[in-house]
Design a protein around this nucleic acid. Structure first.
Length: 102
DNA sequence: CCGATGACTCACG
DNA sequence: CCGTGAGCCATCG
């Protein structure tokens, strides 16, 4: 299983209405130092994918077109304060069963 | 092989 | 809140 593949598996597991950070995804994938590569992996992702649930540390939007991602997330029920989400309220906490299927 | 690059993060001023 | 700089590390030319 390659790193990019792990990234997709994990991102796919994030439920609508919640988000995760790049660093968090990297850590869950087993590589805490590769937050940047998570973004790199997602950069080649179709515009319809589940990538919009990934945000930067602190909940900031990091994509080139923030407005776009913001809309997608808002349509899932995620609220924003400027270009930032309230992680305390919307960050995904993987439950024990979350990876049963992976 | 080397250097530049980047959807990262953190510490500091 | 904003800019800077420094670690980070796979990928690309």
């Amino acid at each position: 299983m390659t790193f990019p593949e792990r990234v997709f598996e994990i991102v796919r597991a994030v439920p609508p209405g919640l988000v995760v950070t790049y660093g968090q995804v990297a850590a869950l994938a087993g590589f805490p130092r590769r937050a940047r590569h998570v973004g790199q992996a997602l950069s080649g992702c179709p515009s319809s994918g589940p990538w919009q649930r990934v945000v930067g540390a602190g909940g900031t939007i990091r994509v080139s077109k923030p407005q776009c991602q913001l809309e997608l997330l808002r349509s899932e029920g995620v609220e924003f304060r400027g270009h930032r989400v309230n992680l305390g309220k919307y960050q995904w906490q993987p439950g024990p069963l979350a990876f049963a299927a992976l």
